[in-house]
Nucleic acid binder design. Structure first.
Lengths: 256, 256
DNA sequence: CGCGATTTGTGCACGTCTTCACAAGCGCCT
DNA sequence: AGGCGCTTGTGAAGACGTGCACAAATCGCG
C-alpha cells in the first residue's frame, strides 16, 4: 500500500488502466456513492466507513463494499475509506475527469428546464449546444446559450467533441433526432421522449420517462390498496407487505 | 375461454381479484407495453403478436410473453393478443382505471416544466396541486393551476384524495417536503431531488436523477474509448464489446 | 373434417445480483 | 510488543431475472 497509484491523477502515463468491467448494477450505483461522498467531503469528513457511506447512499453496506472492491478500491481495514481518494477513483472510472460536452435537442417545456438545470454543470457536464427543429425558437437565448437549428448539428459537432446527446423532443421527432445525433458521432443518448429508439450497435441509449415512473408508483398504490382491503392476511399493513420491495428502488433509513 | 372476465371492467363486483404479485422487473415494463399498445390501437391494429408488441416495446418476445403470463393474460394461440383487452388489463393492474391525483412540490426550473408536461395528463394522472415553499411564487398561475404554499398541504389533502407526491425541490428541502407529504397520507413519492429520502415503511419512493443518468452514460463513453485505444483484442469495436450491455437498458432494434 | 401454419404459455438452464457471515488486516492502547 | 476492537474484502448460497426451445392450443383452408 506504499504505492498509492491514483488512477485519476493527471500525470498518468502508462497504458490505459483497462477499466475493470464492472457489473451494470454497480455502475448505476457509483454516481450515488459519488454524490454522498461529495456531501461528506463538504462536511469535513476525511474518511468514512462502508456503514456510514452506505447509509448516506441508501444501500446495503455489503453491497457497497462489493461495489467498491470491483473497482479495486483501496480502503483501510479498521479505518474505512479515504473520502478524497474514493471521489477521485470513482470520478475516474465514470470518466468524469474531463468535463463532457452534451448537446440538448428540443427546447420545449422539458428541454427548457433541462437547459437551466445546474445539476448538469455541477456534476461533470457542460451543455455545449441547444438545438431545436422549430425555426421560430432558433435564436432564443436560454441560460447564456443561443438556440440553434437542429440541422446545425454537424457544425456543432465540428466545434465541440460531442459524445453525448439529450433528446427532449416530442416522441414523433425523437427517432429522427437520434439518427442525426448518431450521424455526427454521438455514441450515448439520454432519451426523454416516450418512445423506443432504434440505434446502431455501439450506441448506448438510456431512457427516462416521467409518466412511466408515476405508473409504477400507481401500481404499488393499487397493490397497497388491495392489500388493506383484505383483512384475511394477519398482521398490519406493515408486515403484510410481501418482502422484496424495499430493496429494489425504495430507499428507507438514512443515517447522518 | 368462453368466460372473458375483464378484470378492469367497470361493473366488477366480487372481491378484489387479489393482484397477482408481479416481479418488479415486470411491473417496470408494463407501462412500456401499455404505451406501445396505445400506439397500435391508434393505428388501427386489433390484435398483435408477442413478436410485434415486443419489437414495439424494445424487449425480447419471450420476456414479453412471460410478463403477460404473470398477470394471467389472455392471448390466443395462433393469433396473438387483443389490443383493446390487453390495454384494459394492464391499465387495471397498474391502477390506472382511476385518474390519480398528484401533488407537485417545488415550482422551480424543473417543477415548472413538470407542471406543463402533458404526458402526465395523457397517461392517467392529474396534477391536483402545485406547491412551493417560496411565498413569492405563491399565487403564480401555471398551466391553469395556482401555486399554493407548501404549508397548505393538509388543506389540499383534505380536498383531494392524494396518494402520490412529486418532489422537485432543491436537495436541501426534499427531506422536509417528504415528511410533510407522508404526514398528509401520501404513500408514493417520485423524487427528482438528488438526495436519499428517509420514509417510513409502506411508503414507496422512486428516484429520478438526471445527472446520474448522464454519469452512467459517461462511464460507457469512457469504457468505449478505452476499448478502442486497445488494438490488442481482435475484432472491430462492434464485436469487442463484452456482452451483457445490450439487454440492460439499451434498446436496439425496433420493428414497425 | 383433418391438417398445417402460427403463436402462446412455460419448463429449464444459465447468468446476474444480493446478502450473509467471516477471515484477514489495520490501528490503537496498554 | 502484544492484544483487542474495528473494518474491509470476499466466498458461498440463495433470490431473481433472462432467454431458449418446445409442447399445447387455435385458426384457416382445402
Amino acid at each position: 500500500m506504499s504505492q498509492h497509484r491514483h488512477p485519476g491523477a493527471p500525470g498518468r502515463a502508462g497504458a490505459v488502466p483497462a477499466l475493470p468491467d464492472l457489473p451494470e448494477a454497480t455502475v448505476a450505483r457509483l454516481p450515488e456513492y459519488l454524490r454522498a461522498l461529495h456531501n461528506l467531503a463538504d462536511t469535513g469528513h476525511e474518511t468514512v466507513s462502508s456503514e456510514g457511506l452506505s447509509a448516506a447512499a441508501g444501500v446495503n453496506s455489503a453491497k457497497l463494499r462489493k461495489d467498491l472492491s470491483h473497482l479495486g478500491s483501496y480502503g483501510t481495514r479498521g479505518v474505512g475509506y479515504d473520502v478524497a481518494l474514493l471521489i477521485e477513483q470513482i470520478e475516474y472510472v465514470l470518466g468524469l475527469t474531463q468535463r463532457r460536452a452534451v448537446a440538448l435537442v428540443g427546447v420545449g417545456n422539458l428541454g427548457h428546464a433541462l437547459a437551466g438545470y445546474d445539476g448538469f454543470a455541477s456534476r461533470g457536464f457542460r451543455i455545449a449546444a441547444l438545438l431545436d427543429a422549430d425555426r421560430s425558437r432558433v435564436g432564443e437565448e436560454i441560460n447564456g446559450l443561443v438556440v440553434r437549428h437542429v440541422d446545425d448539428l454537424p457544425a456543432v459537432a465540428a466545434e465541440e467533441s460531442l459524445a453525448i446527446g439529450v433528446i427532449a423532443t416530442p416522441a414523433a421527432a425523437a427517432q429522427q433526432v437520434a439518427d442525426q445525433l448518431v450521424a455526427v458521432g454521438v455514441t450515448s443518448i439520454l432519451n426523454f421522449a416516450p418512445c423506443v429508439l432504434s440505434v446502431p450497435e455501439g450506441v448506448d441509449v438510456r431512457k427516462v420517462d416521467l409518466a412511466i415512473e408515476l405508473q409504477i408508483l400507481s401500481f404499488h398504490e393499487h397493490r397497497k390498496a388491495s392489500l388493506t382491503a383484505l383483512p384475511a392476511t394477519g398482521g398490519s399493513a406493515l408486515t403484510a407487505l410481501p418482502g422484496g420491495f424495499a430493496a429494489t428502488d425504495t430507499q428507507e433509513a438514512i443515517g447522518t
